[in-house]
Design a protein around this nucleic acid. Structure first.
Lengths: 149, 149
DNA sequence: CACAACTCTATTGTGCACAATCTATTTGCG
DNA sequence: CGCAAATAGATTGTGCACAATAGAGTTGTG
């Protein structure tokens, strides 16, 4: 379109990314509604399940790229639902340690098939998924590296 | 991890997609704050600028994959800011036609460099951007095709 | 030990997303 | 024509995202 072809394409990359992320989130949300979880609540549980040790709010935020303003209410709802336990770190009272409850561990098994069900029918082959993941990781790395913070 | 390698990978594709979309949105938002626009307001303007004719709320929603519950308040804020005009379609009073005002057209030129500035520094080369766009379009198509609606 | 700077989480306020519902309007069909 | 079904948009309610700020707690330095 101009002497800078990257401009036109980049202008149109943000929209598919935005729409695809919401589309995938919507699909997960539908499946997760069976157990009363929202998508952000689900990915928070994923972070805790993966860790196998209690995480601070900040550590969860690093893994999900979310800040405390988002996580605090999410964690409170997960606590009300009985899926996580929160307690102040006695070694540093500024920190709050979060871990799954036994009920949270049971939840893990009961919704283990959600990812497979969510991606089924999207027509995304394994090789394409790998390539997509590679490009997204590269983009995330680039965003972090050039972030003002 | 199991006999179904796609499961493990798919489980980990939703998170980079989710984080990358928010990261890109955040970067656009920083640049757009100079003119007082949010990212959803910006993509709504993009849809109207691209169309060159008045669009109904539903037509904007098709292009952005957003519904009226999201678009109505966005359009009202854009109207308050003086960037778009809304009017009922006299041929079908159920419909609302939306188009940029002259000030909205001036805005187009004043923020034309935002996409280039947003993507600068992400380290995403043109070929990777093209491939990413192809995969996202494929995913979006797959999501639409297998959606319950 | 005092205390300023720093760190971590929580709170507040604005603006999306989206499901569910409502209202006004239009369109079919008998 | 008469009216049920369909359609378009707006409204309502819940739950994120995130910037800005607050406030409790910790640490480094003299």
């Amino acid at each position: 379109m101009t002497a800078q072809p990257q401009l036109a394409l980049s202008a149109q990359l943000c929209l598919p990314l935005y729409a695809a992320a919401r589309g995938v989130t919507r699909r997960y949300t539908e499946l997760l509604s069976e157990v009363g979880l929202t998508y952000p609540q689900y990915v928070t549980m994923l972070a805790l399940w993966d860790a196998d040790v209690p995480l601070t709010v900040g550590e969860i935020g690093e893994r999900l790229h979310l800040d405390s303003g988002t996580l605090t209410p999410v964690l409170k709802r997960l606590e009300s639902a009985g899926y996580v336990a929160r307690r102040r770190d006695t070694a540093d009272e500024r920190r709050v340690l979060v871990e799954p409850t036994p009920e949270g561990e049971r939840l893990r098994k009961s919704i283990a098939d959600v990812p497979e069900r969510a991606w089924r029918g999207t027509g995304l082959e394994l090789e394409d998924a790998k390539e997509l993941r590679r490009l997204l990781d590269q983009l995330l790395h680039g965003l972090d590296a050039s972030a003002p913070a």
